[in-house]
């Protein structure tokens, strides 16, 4: 009994327990309200579809994941240096930042078809769409991270006769790391959305394409199965990023408990 209680308290088990409860409620609601399967499929049908179509879903997950990762990497590769420039220069900030914020009020989903016009069907429009969604959170968080370095800390480094590059390398960059990572985490989940949007508008492969087609054919279990795969992609990528964060900034307050236990 005590062991069971301990198991329920394990942190990784809690979201799973909650998930099981939600699925049970879903099943319950379908039975009680007599929801027809062409509106909401029963959980068991989704599970069966997942089981039967697993190989196909997996092969469709590959292009989506690849597009997400490329889009995310582009967000990081462009976002962090741009944030550095914005945080480092008032002039650049005053020219670039307002426009960047303004550009975010344009619904990016509306732009996605344009990419198809420009780059045709295939990988490029998906990657660009993922990049477009993932880019902004990286910039905003990184700018905030670079700007929140304590002024006294910068003075301390200056008093040591540190060069601008040394200050950046030894103080500003590590100081901004936690903020950069929180931006990257938002970015990767949005990049999944971006990739799927890209697949919606112009693609013949990927989970987004499966979603599009299964809705058209009223294959709701397939559609739900595709959603599950999509969520899995998001969770796994997020988890990998979390792992990298632990390795890169083990000193940060959010990670410390583990460090002390390890030490």
């Amino acid at each position: 009994m005590q062991r069971l209680q301990k198991m329920i308290q394990a942190p990784w088990l809690r979201p799973l327990i909650f998930l099981v409860i939600l699925i049970a409620l879903w099943d319950f609601a379908i039975r009680i309200f007599h929801i027809p399967p062409y509106q909401v499929p029963a959980p068991i049908d989704v599970v069966i579809t997942l089981w039967q179509e697993w190989p196909k879903l997996m092969s469709e997950a590959v292009p989506t994941t690849v597009a997400t990762v490329y889009g995310f990497l582009l967000s990081a590769v462009f976002g962090i240096p741009i944030a550095m420039l914005i945080a480092g220069s008032r002039t650049i900030e005053s020219y670039v930042y307002p426009l960047l914020v303004f550009s975010q009020s344009i619904p990016k989903i509306a732009i996605a078809p344009l990419f198809v016009v420009w780059f045709g069907f295939g990988m490029t429009p998906k990657v660009l769409s993922a990049f477009l969604l993932g880019f902004f959170p990286v910039v905003v968080s990184a700018v905030q991270g670079f700007k929140s370095v304590e002024p006294d800390l910068l003075d301390l480094a200056r008093a040591m006769e540190a060069s601008r590059l040394q200050i950046f390398r030894m103080v500003s960059l590590p100081y901004a790391m936690p903020a950069i990572f929180s931006g990257l985490k938002v970015s990767i989940t949005l990049a999944v959305v971006g990739a799927v949007v890209g697949e919606f508008v112009g693609s013949n492969s990927g989970i987004g394409y499966v979603l599009q087609r299964s809705i058209g054919n009223f294959e709701l279990p397939t559609m739900f199965a595709a959603l599950v795969i999509l969520a899995l992609i998001g969770v796994i990528l997020f988890w990998i990023l979390d792992l990298i964060e632990r390795l890169v900034i083990p000193w940060h307050a959010s990670q410390r408990q583990d460090v002390i236990v390890a030490a």
Binding site: E150, D152, D155, L156, A159, V171, P174, I249, W251, H252
Partner: peptide, 12 residues
């Protein structure tokens, strides 16, 4: 050598 009000040590 300077010492400020807070220690300003680098946590990493």
């Amino acid at each position: 050598g300077i010492v400020f009000q807070s220690a300003l040590l680098l946590p990493w």
